[in-house]
C-alpha cells in the first residue's frame, strides 16, 4: 500500500468516527433543535466506558475487565445514553440558550472527572495499552487500518439507515414539528418533553458509540482527547455540512477534518523553515476563515436539509 493510500485510510477512519458523532448531534440539533454544547462529554463517557470494560487489569485501576470489544461498544452506548437521560431529565425544560450553557458545563465536568478520578480513568496519564479489535488479524498494520476502516464504515452505514428510517417515521415528523413550533405540537396533543428526551438519549448513545470506536482504533484514551474544542469541531462539521441532513453531516465531517488537518500539511510545505513555528497561528486563522466563508455563502450548509412539505425532488 502506498503511503498516500495508507494515510487516506487513516484519515477517513478518523473522519468516519467524527461523522458518527455528527449524526448524534444531527438528531439532537438538526432534527429536534436541542442545542447540545457538551458533545465531547458524551463522546468521552463512551470512550472511557469502553476502555474500562475492555482494558487489561492493572493493580492501580478499578477497571480492566478484559471484555471483548463488542461488550465495550455496548457498554459505551448504554453509559452515554444513560448520561444523556440524566442530563435530559434535568435540563430539557430549559430553553435553548440555557440548555447550551448547561450542557457546555456538563461537557467540561466530564473531562474534569476524567482528570481527577485517577482510580477509574488513569487520571492525567490516561488508560494505555488497550486491546484493539482486528489488531492481531494478520500482524500487518495496513491490514488492521483497512479492516477497521471497513468496520467504521459499516457502523456508520447502519446508524445512517436507522436514522433515515426514524426520520421518515411519524416520530421523525414529530421531531421536526417540535423543532419548528413547540406550542403547535403541544396543541395537537403531543408531548414535546418526552420526545425531546428520547431524541437526546438516542443522540448521546450514538456519540458514546463513536467514543468506543475511537478507543478501539487508538488503544489509548486520556483527558486531552476530550478538550472542549472538539465540541466546536463537531458543530462546525454539522453546520458546514448542513444540519438536518444526514448526508450533510457526513460531508461536513470530511470537509472540516480535511481543512483542519490538511491546512497544517499545506502550511508546512509553503512556509519557509525559519517561520515554521509561527505558521501554525495562520492555520488557526485559515480554519476559522473557511468556516465563516461557508456559512456566509451557504447558510444552510453544503448540503441543505431536504424540503419536507413540498419536496422539489426526492431526497434523503
Amino acid at each position: 500500500m502506498t503511503g498516500l493510500l495508507a494515510y487516506s485510510v487513516f484519515f477517513l477512519t478518523i473522519a468516519g468516527i467524527y461523522a458518527i458523532i455528527v449524526m448524534g448531534l444531527n438528531i439532537q440539533w438538526g432534527f429536534t433543535g436541542l442545542f447540545n454544547a457538551g458533545v465531547v462529554g458524551f463522546y468521552a463517557i463512551g470512550a472511557y466506558t469502553c476502555a474500562v470494560l475492555i482494558g487489561p487489569d492493572r493493580t492501580f485501576l478499578f477497571g480492566g475487565f478484559g471484555l471483548p470489544f463488542a461488550g465495550g461498544m455496548l457498554g459505551a452506548v448504554v453509559a452515554a445514553g444513560l448520561a444523556g437521560l440524566v442530563v435530559a431529565l434535568v435540563t430539557l425544560r430549559l430553553s435553548e440558550e440555557y440548555l447550551a450553557i448547561a450542557t457546555f458545563g456538563i461537557g467540561i465536568s466530564v473531562q474534569l472527572v476524567a482528570i481527577n478520578a485517577a482510580g477509574l480513568t488513569g487520571g492525567t496519564n490516561g488508560l494505555y495499552g488497550l486491546p484493539r479489535p482486528f489488531w492481531n488479524l494478520t500482524g500487518d498494520v495496513a491490514v488492521f487500518n483497512l479492516v477497521y476502516f471497513a468496520f467504521v464504515l459499516v457502523i456508520l452505514g447502519l446508524i445512517w439507515a436507522a436514522l433515515a428510517r426514524l426520520i421518515r417515521s411519524p416520530w421523525g415528523r414529530l421531531l421536526r414539528a417540535i423543532r419548528e413550533d413547540d406550542v403547535a405540537a403541544r396543541s395537537l396533543g403531543k408531548s414535546p418533553v418526552r420526545v425531546r428526551i428520547q431524541s437526546f438519549v438516542i443522540g448521546s448513545g450514538i456519540m458514546g458509540l463513536a467514543g468506543a470506536l475511537y478507543t478501539g482504533y487508538i488503544g489509548f484514551v486520556s483527558p486531552i482527547d476530550f478538550i472542549p474544542i472538539l465540541t466546536f469541531q463537531i458543530w462546525a462539521m454539522l453546520i458546514v455540512g448542513g444540519s438536518g441532513s444526514l448526508l450533510g453531516g457526513v460531508v461536513g465531517s470530511l470537509v472540516i477534518w480535511l481543512v483542519w488537518t490538511g491546512s497544517g500539511t499545506l502550511l508546512s510545505r509553503v512556509a519557509p523553515p525559519e517561520l515554521q513555528a509561527q505558521a501554525s497561528a495562520v492555520q488557526v486563522i485559515l480554519i476559522g476563515l473557511i468556516i465563516v466563508l461557508t456559512i456566509l455563502f451557504r447558510p444552510a450548509g453544503l448540503i441543505g436539509e431536504p424540503r419536507a412539505v413540498t419536496p422539489a425532488r426526492r431526497g434523503g
Binding site: 487513516f10 484519515f11 497544517g264 492555520q283
Partner: peptide, 20 residues
C-alpha cells in the same frame, strides 16, 4: 507540524509525516 494540543490532530500529523 503543530498538534494544536489535540491528540487527533497530532496523530494525523504524525501519520502524514510517516506515510506521505
Amino acid at each position: 507540524r503543530d498538534d494544536q494540543g489535540q491528540p487527533s490532530v497530532g496523530l494525523d500529523a504524525a501519520k502524514t509525516l510517516v506515510e506521505v
